[in-house]
Design a protein around this nucleic acid. Structure first.
Lengths: 162, 162
DNA sequence: CTGCATTAATTAGATACCTAACTAATTATG
DNA sequence: CATAATTAGTTAGGTATCTAATTAATGCAG
């Protein structure tokens, strides 16, 4: 607390990327542990179950575009889910490279079982927040995400990305 | 096979832990790349430089308490910084186990060099946000963090949660 | 029809992180 | 004062993730 600091403008506790990372790690760790302990699912696997439950049939590239996960992460998550018979893969008749992923009945059942738990966690996390605060929070997170994406895409220091 | 979705209440895009994770990954990735590319610093190393620049002399346990990093992460970050002569370690005379970390002049200089860049990134990220939105965002992130900590069974990690 | 670039997906290697186990120094307790 | 219990810090092992390189299928130019 002694004030002899050369950079009064940079305080870690009020630095937004730091606050965002710490909060996200706390929340993600909580959720990840819940899925892992009770259902032996990783977070990427759970996300696959969610998007397939929402959208029906998707290829892996579509999942990569839909979520913001790496294609390797999606590939590994899909392998694990196929092995547990929670999703199925069928050949895409029009494109021999891509496989279409769908939930099996077991996968659908597991998703239906976990979804209330996931919503309960979310409800517990935002219990102290007003609904309009939650709405604003989500909007602000979206703005930060797109701002980060733009800044990363501009690549001020490296004009050649290949 | 239209949208036969059993859980209209769980939409991934509006699920807060997901939004938080995606936004944090985007921002962290941007920042991490900047530190890594230009200064060969990992994020934990940068955080050590920051807290030492702010607080002066700290032991590793104090840094663990101050930031929310794991002690292993702190240990390795400190090793790398010592090797580059950016921080120094001195024996604590009153406790032979603990070492006191301080910035070297080089470390202080590097911190002073990076800090404006870090602040510029933050400014670019929040460029489209009103100041009161930023304030609210930080407060909401703090609330989520402490809520997650409580749900995980921990005590609130830092007494200075404002 | 044939090469050439692109795309979907997997595999491999390197790095980072977390949980545990471990060493060494300190404190508490009998 | 001896010994057990804590604490500071490091090392090790397993796992997850990112970057690159690879395989296989598609589309396009000549």
């Amino acid at each position: 607390m002694s004030g002899d600091v050369g950079d009064p403008g940079l305080k870690l506790d009020s630095y937004l990327p730091y606050r965002l990372s710490v909060a996200s790690n706390a929340v993600s760790g909580l959720i990840a542990r819940a899925y892992e302990d009770r259902f032996a699912l990783t977070v990427p696997q759970w996300r696959l179950l969610c998007v397939l439950a929402e959208d029906g049939r998707l290829s892996q590239v579509q999942i990569v575009a839909r979520t913001v996960m790496d294609k390797v992460t999606v590939s590994r998550a899909a392998q694990g889910l196929v092995k547990r018979r929670l999703i199925g893969r069928s050949q895409n008749t029009s494109d021999g490279r891509s496989h279409v992923l769908t939930l099996t009945p077991e996968g659908r059942g597991l998703h239906a079982e976990i979804a209330p738990l996931a919503l309960a966690y979310e409800a517990a996390l935002i219990a102290g927040l007003a609904p309009e605060e939650v709405t604003l929070l989500k909007r602000l997170l979206g703005r930060l995400q797109s701002a980060a994406g733009q800044l990363a895409g501009e690549a001020p220091s490296s004009p050649s990305l290949r």
